[in-house]
Design a protein around this nucleic acid. Structure first.
Lengths: 159, 159
DNA sequence: TATTGTTATACTCTATAACTATA
DNA sequence: TATAGTTATAGAGTATAACAATA
C-alpha cells in the first residue's frame, strides 16, 4: 500500500505525510460513502455551486484530467445532483449546474468533510494544531508547491 | 491526480496532507531515480541491512503485499544490490542478503532521502519544524494511526 | 489552428487466487 | 492445516490518443 517505514533516528517526513494523508483519505472516503459520494464528487459539487463553471474549469480546480471529470460528472448526473447545461457563450462547453438535491447533499457533505478534519485536528493540543496548519500552508506555498515532473513513458497509438 | 482543492475558510487538512505528501513523493522519486532506485527498493535495502530478514518480514515493515515484495526483490537482484538466500531455519523462507554494492548504494540513498527531507524541513522556521514533527507523530500514533477498512469488492476466480 | 467534451483504450499498480514446497 | 514465496491475472485508477463539434 504505502511504502517507506520509520525506524531511523532521522525524522522521516515521507512516512509521516504518506501515512497521515492515506489514513485521513480512508476516513474521508468512508464518511462520504455513507451518503453515496466520493471525495471527487464532493469537490466538484462544491466548486460548481460557487459559480457557473465548465467541466474543464472544475477539472483544473480539482486537479483532475478532463476524462476523469467526465466520469465524475456522469456519477453526479446519475445521482441527480448535477446536470450538464450548454454554455450560453461557448457551444462546445458544458456548465455543471447543481440541482436542488445537489445543493442539499453538498451542504451535508461539507459538514461531513469539516467533521472529519475537525476530529483529526481536535486530537492535537491547540498550540500544535495552529502551528501544524501554519507550517503545512507554508510548505504548500513554498518548498512543496509544485510536483516534480516524472518523465512519462510515451504511449503507443490506438490500434 | 490528487483530488480536493482549498478555497474555503475551514482549514482543509486533506488538501494540505495530500498535496505535500504527493509533491514530496515526486521529489523523492526523482532524487532516488538518479541512482536507479525506487523508494521501495531503498526501503527494503535499508531494512534488510539492519538484520537478517525474510521477504515477508520486509514486506510487513514496508507495508507492501508479498507479491509486491517479489518484484521489488527481483529489481534489487537484477541491479546486483541484494540476493535471495535460503533461510537456515526455514526452508520455505528466503533471507534478503544485501551485497557489498548494495550497502554502498544504501548509504548513498539514505543520504539522498535525508537530504530531501532536510531541504523540506529547512524551508520552515525552526520552531514550526519542531512542532510540525511532534504533531505529525502524535497523529500517526493516535487519531490517524490505522487506515479505515474499505469494503473490498470480492474478486472472481482465476479463469 | 486550437479547444471542449467525449469515447475507447493502453498502462500502471496493486492485490487476490491458486499453486508449490515446506512447516 | 498453515505459511513463505511464486506466478498469473483481475480490477481499479488514470491518462493518452483520436475524434466531433465549435471557436
Amino acid at each position: 500500500m504505502t511504502a517507506m517505514a520509520p525506524s531511523r533516528a532521522e525524522p522521516d517526513l515521507s512516512f509521516l505525510l504518506d501515512h497521515t494523508s492515506h489514513v485521513l483519505r480512508t476516513q474521508m472516503a468512508a464518511a462520504l460513502a455513507e451518503i453515496g459520494l466520493t471525495a471527487r464528487m464532493h469537490c466538484v459539487l462544491v466548486h460548481a455551486i460557487e459559480e457557473e463553471r465548465t467541466q474543464i474549469q472544475l477539472a483544473e480546480i480539482g486537479d483532475m484530467d478532463k476524462t476523469t471529470m467526465v466520469v465524475t460528472v456522469d456519477a453526479l448526473e446519475k445521482a441527480g445532483l448535477a446536470e450538464r447545461r450548454p454554455s450560453s457563450t461557448d457551444r462546445r462547453a458544458r456548465i455543471i449546474a447543481v440541482t436542488e438535491k445537489g445543493r442539499e447533499v453538498a451542504e451535508h457533505s461539507q459538514r461531513i468533510v469539516d467533521g472529519v478534519h475537525r476530529k483529526a485536528l481536535d486530537a492535537l493540543p491547540e498550540d500544535e494544531r495552529e502551528v501544524l496548519l501554519r507550517a503545512m500552508n507554508r510548505l504548500v506555498e513554498g518548498h512543496l508547491s509544485t510536483p516534480m515532473e516524472t518523465p512519462r513513458p510515451a504511449r503507443r497509438a490506438r490500434q
